[in-house]
Write a protein that binds this DNA or RNA. Structure first.
Lengths: 160, 160
DNA sequence: GTATAACCAAGTAATTTAATAGGAATTAAA
DNA sequence: TTTAATTCCTATTAAATTACTTGGTTATAC
């Protein structure tokens, strides 16, 4: 139940692009260096983002990438789904037609659980817009450390 | 971002136990057969559930497993965390101390995203009690198919 | 025309997953 | 007191996935 580096690196890369973008295109090599991500690997991630219509590219010298939309119109959900595929906790085929159509009452019932989890994840990520993260990033930039203690709370044994 | 078979099989196994349990202990072989799960594999899963205090065991002939608590007092979250480890979308160490303490503003900011996702997942699973699933399972048993069309809605291309 | 960049496809090492296998310990019942 | 049933425990393994790396080709500003 973990995101891969695709989602983790990819979100950072898009955020980097959003924070540092002016109207010029930004070369991938710059993002890769700032974020300490392998440029070749990042290439594969940005290809997915481009395919999903989140970034656009300009080829050739002085080329690079731009956001395809204003940051207010891009949600974290859009970015993560582009990189990770759907964010459901089980494969879609399992939700619909797993093991025959509800041949077993219990697998039928657990589908409700997967759907509730899926909905809550998608709801969470869809309500976070890239613009919020940009704003937050600029705040952090200018007064380090404020956020870190909060983040630590996630890590107790009792997550609840 | 998928649950493994540990979580999927394990939840079904606990539900099976809850549905079919009387006051006698239930042998794992019966659960394995009813749920079409390898008995040897299920053994490993139930060991985790036992360690987490969700089931108790009785050894020897006529032995088996029982719920350690009434189904109303066991949440799906308890079960899934026992089987899968914590349900955060990133490893905890990443949330607290990844890549130095916020050496990079963007990784610092994305931690908020992981925390929001984590909280929403845990909130979703903690509010579903095993007893609800038992009731639902009995309903399904007696009038197949009502749930299936609903489950299908998860599967469109647009999850939103 | 040359440097700079995006674009593309294949390969690979390491890790994780989903089991399988084989036995030891415990206990109810014959 | 033996036997059968059952939990308990550890090690091994095949397959899949992940996280890259490698080695190019194509487009374009200067």
């Amino acid at each position: 139940m973990k995101l891969s580096t695709k989602g983790r690196y990819g979100l950072r890369a898009v955020l980097d692009l959003a924070v540092h973008a002016d109207d010029e295109a930004m070369a991938l090599s710059q993002i890769a260096e700032r974020q300490s991500i392998s440029m070749n690997y990042l290439e594969q991630l940005i290809a997915k983002l481009k395919k999903a219509g989140i970034v656009t590219s300009i080829r050739g010298a002085q080329g690079g990438y731009k956001l395809a939309l204003p940051a207010e119109e891009i949600s974290v959900g859009d970015i993560l789904r582009a990189l990770e595929g759907d964010l459901s906790p089980v494969d879609c085929s399992l939700v619909t037609s797993n093991e025959g159509i509800c041949s077993n009452a219990d697998s039928c019932v657990t589908k409700y659980v997967w759907k509730r989890i899926s909905d809550s994840i998608n709801d969470a990520v869809d309500t976070i817009k890239l613009s919020e993260l940009v704003a937050e990033s600029r705040k952090v930039q200018a007064g380090i450390g404020t956020t870190d203690t909060k983040a630590k709370q996630t890590c107790g044994n009792s997550v609840k």
